[in-house]
Nucleic acid binder design. Sequence first.
DNA 1: CTGCAACTTGAAGTTGACTTGAACTCAAGG
DNA 2: CCTTGAGTTCAAGTCAACTTCAAGTTGCAG
Lengths: 145, 145
Amino acid sequence: MELLTIGDMAARSGVAPSALRYYEREGLIRSTRTGGNQRRYERHELRRVAFIKIAQQVGVSLEEIRGALAALPENRTPTKADWARLSARWRRKLEDRIAVMQRLRDELTGCIGCGCLSLQRCKLINPQDQLAERGEGPQMIINPP
Amino acid sequence: MELLTIGDMAARSGVAPSALRYYEREGLIRSTRTGGNQRRYERHELRRVAFIKIAQQVGVSLEEIRGALAALPENRTPTKADWARLSARWRRKLEDRIAVMQRLRDELTGCIGCGCLSLQRCKLINPQDQLAERGEGPQMIINPP
DNA sequence: CTGCAACTTGAAGTTGACTTGAACTCAAGG
DNA sequence: CCTTGAGTTCAAGTCAACTTCAAGTTGCAG
């Protein structure tokens, strides 16, 4: 089997055909067509789909994912090095997100002691002790200093 | 200021009035009404909103959040102990999610070496080395053994 | 008492990420 | 050659989580 049908892709990736068509419309994956206008996928498109799934688990939008995938070469099959570069960048994002959640956990642990979760007093929500009028949500957790 | 108007709540929580009304419709927060049918919030409703915001950052749906908040007493102002119980449960959720992402990161780190991200071979995607026909996505990362 | 910002409701619109349906065509085994 | 499961398109539907709009009401400062 040289090229994969959309059904093959769906079976192997666990992503529905309709979603694969959607990804293609959105420019996240690509396919060639048979004489009869059916999609055929190169095997390496499975890696793109894999990457999309991983990124989505981390809570990244398709738009951002498209941006990341744009770093891959258009005209040739991506090499290991291409993927490695992408993965490294991705790893950093993941670690940032992990750090955010760890901070969240640590603050929440502190708040179990005080039982507060107060928007005014609790570091978790208003870490800089801003006035209520200034604070617009838990800035420190989203954008740490 | 005894009770808060919806505008006060919005200013202090960073959540738009329309969202607060929405939360109320969805049963996540509650308010009393003035003679003229305007909402008035008890101060402790701010904590509920705080909790909602935190939970959303972790990627939890309002439906699930409503479930969690349902553990708080209906008929009285929640005590520190009430909130502490909720926070403790929440902390566990958070830690689970952190663990998922750490696993994701570690696997991805491994995959930088091999540059694969292959749906068939890579542990990240198909950790049990299931046949392509059986695997429906990265089960091990979502539901670890 | 007046004026005006802040509030009310219900309905409809928005965005992201898809899914579903209708109507049709293709590919491949018997 | 014929059937049938798999594929095609385009339009419309769905779901969550809101926002926006229109049309009307309230609360408080002056």
